[in-house]
Amino acid sequence: MKKRLFIYTAFLAFSSASLFAQNQDADDDLKTTNAVTTDSIVASSSYVIDPLAPSKAAFYSAIVPGLGQVYNKSYWKVPIVYGSMGLSMYYYSFNNTEYHRYRDAYRDRLAGRPVTGELAELSNDRLISGQRFHQRNRDLSLLITVGLYILNIVEANVDAHLAQFNVNENLSFHPTIEQTGMYNTGLYNTGFQVGMTMSYKF
């Protein structure tokens, strides 16, 4: 009788210890899961998208060229914007001055007034050709300046879009090679298939 009682007591003690250990492991797993979930929420919440950022960048560049690049913190692009637009505006000013110089000389020639300076030795055909040449280059420089102004706005808008593009590792493509099997004339043949899988980690 005492032997049975001792065995029964030992069995109860062992069962209680096992149950306590299982509960402790379950609590540890729950804490770990909560910690991972909390970390995941914090990590995901740190990724913020501002839908108005591209519009703001484009608006700033429309007001002052290069200001949208400053808003996007792409400071190295500002000298490129001002350098390209400044060069095209310089060529516009230069060709506009030369166009008026050739035109005034041609008008003086037609009015019978003496033409002075380096244009005095040019014929009427050369004066007309010079007018057309500088007028064409002046108009082209103006178009390039306007195009660079528009490009400055578009670039600021696109750069703001790309700055918010999600490039973390939660969404990714991975190449996979899977072994497949099929029955053929009573035999089991194996082969490989190459494919691409898309995975998203929550």
Rank of each mutant, 00 (worst) to 15 (best):
N34T: 00
N34C: 03
V36T: 14
T37W: 09
A43D: 15
S44W: 00
S46R: 08
V48M: 09
V48Y: 15
V48G: 02
I49G: 07
D50M: 09
P51L: 14
A53K: 14
K56M: 12
A57S: 11
F59A: 15
F59Q: 15
A62Y: 07
A62V: 01
I63Y: 03
G66F: 09
G68I: 05
Q69L: 05
Q69K: 14
V70S: 13
Y71T: 03
K73C: 07
S74F: 07
W76P: 03
W76Q: 08
K77L: 09
P79Q: 13
I80V: 08
V81C: 03
V81F: 02
Y82L: 04
Y82G: 03
G83I: 01
S84A: 09
M85H: 02
M85I: 05
G86T: 00
L87S: 09
L87F: 15
L87T: 08
S88R: 05
M89Y: 01
Y90S: 01
Y92C: 01
Y92G: 01
N96K: 08
N96D: 08
T97K: 11
Y99S: 03
Y99G: 01
H100S: 09
R101K: 14
R101F: 00
R101E: 03
Y102G: 14
Y106K: 13
R109S: 03
A111H: 06
A111D: 13
G112I: 08
P114W: 11
L119I: 07
L122T: 01
N124Y: 01
D125L: 15
D125I: 13
R126H: 13
L127I: 00
I128A: 10
I128N: 07
I128W: 13
G130K: 06
R132W: 11
F133K: 09
Q135I: 02
N137C: 01
L142G: 08
L142M: 06
L143Q: 10
T145G: 13
T145V: 05
V146L: 12
G147M: 05
I153P: 07
I153E: 04
V154C: 00
E155N: 15
E155Y: 06
A156F: 05
N157C: 08
N157W: 14
H161R: 15
H161S: 10
Q164T: 04
F165D: 12
F165Y: 02
F165M: 13
N166L: 04
V167D: 09
E169N: 02
N170S: 13
F173I: 00
H174A: 06
H174E: 02
Q179G: 03
T180A: 03
G181Y: 14
